[in-house]
Design a binder for these strands. Structure first.
Length: 494
RNA sequence: GGCGCGGUACCCAAGUGGUAAGGGAGAGGUCUGCAAAACCUUUAUGCGUCGGUUCGAUUCCGACCCGCGCCUCCA
């Protein structure tokens, strides 16, 4: 069965078929790099990442383009405030964003930057002006003439037919022909950063960059355009107006929007004190994998209530999956195979695929993997898992992790990175004991741990439990959990 | 005001016109030198409220209550 996705344009779930067979061209609106990214931003980026990964798993070659908005009013304001050039200012936050994205397992898309496409954007405006779709205001700014695009409002389901120019608003004070017309190109105010172009000095409007860069990278018509739900209007509506006026063709076929999240049941806002950047959470000691798991666990079109209790629960859930994998990898199985386990693995893969095919129902995909884990663990305890059952079970786990990317444990080095960053920023007081412990556990190498485990084994063989327990306690101190099982001793970082 | 989404157990959260996935937490148990891990049992006659349609509704319809989003640059 094919992937079925909700399309904001049609307001229905539709079967997703790309224009070109076996190839998906998608564009996602990326960050404006003027500050640290917050967890709301990352919910959207993770939703897009899950989509990208699932499309690839489904056999598509995926061209995933994302823009970096590295010029806008806030950036110009903040860089001037900090005495930096726009480029200096944005370079810092772009780096931060990419580090954060990597930290929670977001695969890096093809990145395009607004400031690297200024001439193309000016050219785009010039072409629209030739068609009288764009017009120049007295100050040198350019606006889009909405009356030239009758389909305006189709994406956001807004009816603009009743709004007449000049009837409601004194358009003169906006220097626009119609109050609804939006800026394509902004003329510089005195002292502002600007670029010299064929249409005069200025900088691109926000909507323009996405139209120009997406079409440049993906063609005039492509498969899917993604972003947060707030972008539906006006950003995406304006992109459509610009692009389709320019080409006369359908711009993007599918419109994919992720819903906003709540924090502890309330809208995230600085004034409520529930505004968190990704790094805030890691500073508090939460693992990147816990954050990713939680953000991925609620289907992207549902409101997700982000809570600290939920983060804790996510951590335990991830642990459960990791423990299961450790158990499978520990070996010690009787030879042969158990048909029940073989079909369990196959059915689980099938269920996960069906769940994700259903408009990326991540919650159901997770339910499927946990069902498998429980049943396989039971079989484990009764000795009903044989040597040949291990590869298919591991394969199902891998399929899951190709999408969710939480099982393979690389939390510790990432947390160490945040720890080092906090020190460098002079924010040592913000480092929680948990993060400190995680960063410390990075100090002890795998080889050192293995040596200590060998000592434990020797002590246990001599039935010197006191010594064995002492080593275990020592490792625990260093952030390493040691578990003694029938199959042998295994360890993991806390 | 216009348009749209949602209210499911202690918490998070799927789902269906025919009788409630999954995870976490709690309680009891099994296993175990100890500790973990793991497993088993248990926790919603109930799915915001009130009506309606139906043999049957949590699922469809209506009203109401509550929460949330967009309505010119917040993911």
């Amino acid at each position: 069965m094919a992937l079925r996705l909700y399309n904001t344009m049609s307001a229905r779930i539709e079967e997703f078929h790309p224009i070109r067979d076996h190839e998906v061209r998608m564009y996602a609106c990326g960050p404006t790099v003027y500050d640290y990214g917050h967890i709301g931003n990352f919910r959207t980026f993770i939703a897009v990442d899950l989509l990208r990964r699932f499309l690839r798993q489904s056999g598509y070659k995926v061209h995933h383009v994302m823009n970096i908005t590295d010029v806008d009013d806030r950036i110009i304001h903040n860089s001037a405030r900090d005495g930096l050039t726009v480029q200096q200012y944005t370079a810092k936050y772009e780096k931060v964003f990419l580090e954060d994205a990597a930290m929670i397992g977001i695969e890096e898309p093809i990145l395009v930057r607004a400031t690297e496409h200024i001439p193309e954007m000016a050219n785009f405006v010039a072409k629209l002006a030739e068609k009288d779709i764009a017009y120049r205001a007295d100050d040198g700014s350019y606006y889009f003439r909405i009356s030239k695009f009758p389909a305006y409002g189709r994406l956001s389901k807004k009816d603009f037919s009743g709004i007449l120019d000049g009837a409601r608003v004194d358009t003169d004070q906006y220097d626009k022909d119609s109050a609804r017309d939006f800026a394509l190109w902004k003329a510089p105010k005195p002292g502002e950063t600007s670029w010299q172009t064929q249409i005069g000095p200025g900088r691109p409007g926000w909507h323009l960059e996405c139209s120009v860069m997406s079409m440049e990278e993906l063609g005039e018509s492509f498969d899917l355009h993604a972003g947060g739900e707030d972008l539906i209007f006006p950003h995406h509506e304006n992109e459509i107006a610009q692009s389709e006026s320019y080409t006369g063709k359908t711009f993007a076929r599918f419109w994919f929007h992720a819903r906003f999240l709540l924090v502890e049941g309330e809208k995230m806002s600085k004034s409520l004190g529930n505004f968190f950047t990704l790094r805030d959470l890691v500073l508090k000691g939460y693992k990147p994998s816990s954050i990713r798991y939680l953000l991925a666990s609620v289907p992207y079109r549902n409101q997700l209530n982000f809570t600290f209790d939920g983060l804790q629960q996510a951590a335990v859930s991830v642990e459960r999956l990791r423990n299961f994998r450790l158990r499978l990898n520990a070996g010690g199985f009787a030879s042969g195979k158990n048909p029940a386990m073989q079909s369990l693995a196959t059915e689980t893969i099938e269920k996960m695929r069906a769940a994700l095919d259903d408009d990326l129902n991540t919650a159901q995909a997770q339910a499927a993997i946990f069902e498998m884990v429980r049943q396989a663990n039971t079989a484990f305890d009764t000795g009903d898992i044989k040597k040949d059952d291990v590869p298919p079970l591991l394969a199902a786990l891998e399929k899951f992790d190709e999408i969710f990317a939480v099982i393979h444990d690389n939390d510790t080095p990432k947390m160490k990175q945040v720890f080092d960053w906090a020190i460098a920023q002079g924010r040592e007081k913000d480092i929680s004991p948990e993060l400190r412990e995680a960063a410390q556990s990075e100090q002890i190498s795998d080889a050192e741990i293995e040596t200590k485990i060998a000592d434990m084994k020797a002590a246990r063989a001599a039935r010197d439990f006191k010594k064995s327990d002492a080593i275990r306690a020592e490792l625990a101190e260093a952030g390493v959990v040691v578990e003694i099982t029938k199959e042998g001793i295994r360890w993991r970082r806390k």
